[in-house]
Structure formats: C-alpha cells, structure tokens
Nucleic acid binder design. Structure first.
Lengths: 213, 213
DNA sequence: GGCATTATTGAATGAACGTTAAACACGGGC
DNA sequence: GCCCGTGTTTAACGTTCATTCAATAATGCC
C-alpha cells in the first residue's frame, strides 16, 4: 500500500502555517476586531478552542502574523536599493517594478502592509507599540530610498520634479492601489502591470528635454 | 440678560449631526466592529443608551452615515463630468483636481469612500446589499468618466496611453492615496497638492510629440 | 408654579466572543 | 492489548457589548 494513502498526522509546523494563512486573509479583509477565532478555526477545519493548542491568544496570533510578514517586508526593502550602475531612470523603473511585484504577488500580505501605511483597516490599533515603531521605520526607509532616486535623477537633469513629496507619493500610490483593482484572472499578468506602472512613474518625473525618448 | 448666555437645548437635528460626525470619524479610523456605542457616546458627551433616543441601532447609524455620504459622492460625480469645450488635457486636469479636493476636503468622508473602493477597512462587510450595489455604481461611473476622457485624448492624439486600465487606476490612485499622507498643517495646501497631482496625471498620459509643453 | 413632553440616566438583559478546563480520541511504542 | 503523549472536543466562565426598560431630570408651555 503506497504511503500516500496513509494520511500521517501533519507536522505541527504545517498546521500553524495553515492557521497563519487563514488568519492573515481574514485579518486583511475584515480587520482584526471583526474576525472571530471561530472564523479562523472554521477556515482550517477545527473548532475555536483547538487553536489555543497552537497559540496562546488571538492577540498573539496577530502579533505573529505581522512579525512573519516583517521578514518579507525587509526582503523587499533590500530589493529596493538601486544598483550603483543604474541610471536614475533605470533605478526608478526597478523600484516601481519591485514594489508592484511585492504588492501583487501576495495580496493578503500586501493588504496588511498597506493597512499599516494607510492607517486604515483597524489593524494598527491592535498592534504593540514595538511593532508600530517597526512599521514607521519601514515607511521611512521606503520613502527615503525613493527620494534618493528622485534626487539623483534631478541632479543629473534626467528628472524634473516639482515637489518631491507629492511626486514620491504619486509613485508609491501606483503600487499600494494596485491590490485594490488587480485581478489575477484578467488578461494582464503581474509582470505586465509592473512594467506599465514603471512606465507611468518614469513619465511622472521625466524632464521635458528628455521626453519622447 | 443676553440670550447667548441662556443655553437653549440644541435642536434634535444638531445633535444627530454631532453624532454622525463622531460616528463617521470612528468608523473611518477604527472600523465598524471595533467602534463601540460607548466610544461614540463619549465623543458627543452622552452615555451609550442615550444614542438610542436618536437611532434605532448601531447598524442603522452606519447605514445613515453611508447614506448621507452618498449624497456628497453624487455631488462629486457631477463635478467630474468635463465641459464640452475642454480639451482632453484640461478635462483630465479638472477631473484630478476635483477628485483630490474631494479627498482632502473631508478626510473622514474620503476614508469611507476609499474603504468601499479598496474593499478594506471592514466597512463593506457591514453594509446592506442595496448599499453595496449603490457603491458599485459609483465606482463604475467614476471609472467610466475617466476612461471617456482618456479615450477622447487618445483619439485627438493628445494622449498616448499604453493601457487604459492601468493608466486609469494610476490616476485614481493619486487621489485615493492622498488622504494617507496629506497633512493639512504642512506647507502644502489642498489646492497645491491638487494642482501637482493634475500635473502628474497629465504627464502620465501625454503623447511624446506634445511633451515638453 | 404645575404639567406634559423631551431627553437622559443607571441598572438589567441577552448574545457573542475570547478563553479555560476537563473529558475524550487517536496513533505509536512496548 | 496497554499506555502515553499529542491533538481535539464539548461544556463552561467571565467579559464586553448592543440594546431595553423603568425611573428621572430638564425643558417648554399654560
């Protein structure tokens, strides 16, 4: 008899992973308060008290979910730093593409990330002070990276930027808004959208003398 | 004795208005589920049961808040229709400016509006089916108006648009994201931000031959 | 100044929810 | 076949919250 037909009890790790997945989806779509332990339990096929065998509390579950995602955020952050050789235009393209791929690759994770930045979604309120501080650091770093790219572009006269804040936010908006409308089943692939958005960003900053390729 | 010193009981209308204001702010920032009747009551200086003299239920309070804002949304929608005489560029500028002024003029209202569009914020879940349908209509109309402007611009060769969906969403993103970062106490006024964003939008769509003014 | 109406309160109710506790199933090792 | 640790369940507890109710205070009217 093939061992595949003998369903071994799944290892603890795998169960917690499934719980995390259910929790992040529910927290991201309904918010922390509006999600009950039973909602999560049903989604993984248990009863609510069973969850307490794996997690000490709902609050802790949220904490862990955020914490896990911090690692992904940090990973994206590393990808956002431009290569020295890149022209400002290339650096900006790369920045926007990375940002969009991050956003569209895992919509639930992105919603958590955005909820934090947008101050919406009733998630921020439920975090610990330490996590909130951590989030601010991410925000500052991402904006700093983008600003550096823009400044370099202006210094080289590749870019013409009227206002760094507004332009920077306009560029970030492309990514944060994308999860709201992108449909993975549509004709557009993630890569295509990312490329298109990179184009839009470049257009936003391109100096008049260099426009029209 | 001057009548100003004799505090007449405020008319019912005025009290409900204050309750609405408190409710919209709390719903928008914390979400519906995370807001308690007591939160609202404290904010207007009453106890929770007193609210029931004005509203039959919390659900109804949310319903009314959304309903009231529908009128504002509809008002904005009317402003989004371009004048016949406008060039596509002017029409787009006007569209974006109107959108941004709407967003920044009342941040709480805008958050409600955006939460609906973004599917985040745990508000959508708490609405009636009728209200949800109404929201979809708004969404469709706004996108339709923008698409019409873009198509006219392309037809006249004023615009070069690679993809209507992505470009349209990029333009809407400017406004929906603005409430997240705009600080009314900063050096930038609403009008300035709106103008800047209009510029960014125009840059996003401008045909190469016409770029550089 | 008394009275009906309007507005608000404190206490009470019932449901939902997070969480705990004790009992129960299941599988592996002897 | 028995035992033990690992999961899971049902029942129960305490709390929070929306909501109700009876009592009461404030107001406007005569």
């Amino acid at each position: 008899m093939p061992k595949a037909l003998v369903p071994k009890r799944p290892p603890r790790e795998q169960v917690t992973a499934r719980i995390y997945a259910a929790a992040i989806r529910l927290f991201a779509s309904r918010g922390y308060e509006a999600t009950t332990m039973q909602d999560i339990a049903v989604k993984v096929g248990m009863t609510a008290p069973a969850l307490y065998y794996y997690f000490e509390s709902k609050q802790r579950l949220l904490y862990d979910v955020i914490e896990i995602n911090f690692e992904h955020f940090a990973g994206m952050l590393d990808l956002l730093v431009p290569a020295e050789a890149d022209s400002p235009t290339e650096a900006l393209r790369s920045f926007v593409r990375t940002h969009l791929e991050f956003q569209l690759e895992d919509v639930d994770r992105a919603r958590i990330y955005n909820a934090m930045f947008l101050g919406t979604g009733a998630l921020l309120e439920s975090l610990t002070a330490g996590q909130r501080a951590e989030i601010l650091k991410f925000q500052t770093k991402v904006r700093g990276r983008l600003q550096a790219i823009l400044e370099r572009g202006v210094a080289r006269r590749e870019f013409a930027v009227a206002d760094f804040t507004v332009t920077g936010m306009g560029i970030l908006a492309l990514g944060e808004f994308a999860v709201a409308w992108f449909d993975p089943d549509s004709r557009l692939t993630v890569a295509q959208v990312a490329d298109q958005c990179a184009d839009l960003a470049v257009r936003m900053v391109q100096a008049p003398s260099r426009r029209g390729k």
